[in-house]
Amino acid sequence: MVERIDVALHGLCQPLTVLQCRLSLGEMLGTPEALQEAVHESLRECARLNDGVGRMRTMLQQSVAMEENERAR
């Protein structure tokens, strides 16, 4: 489980990096076009983050279900 979480966390790092940097760059440039582009690309990264969080949630649910099964036995 710990290993799977480690891999999943690693998967979150990519979109989180792009999201953070993209917003910084938009703020740095400051023009309406740059900000709009930053928001547009950041939303795409948010979608990637949501996918990653979804996968982690599924993993957690599976793990909880497995533990409950163990206890029920």
Binding site: V18, R22, L25, E41, E45
Partner: peptide, 15 residues
Amino acid sequence: DDASLGLFLQKGLKL
């Protein structure tokens, strides 16, 4: 290898 990050880094460092 991550296209999104690669493209961003390229753009950011060009600036």
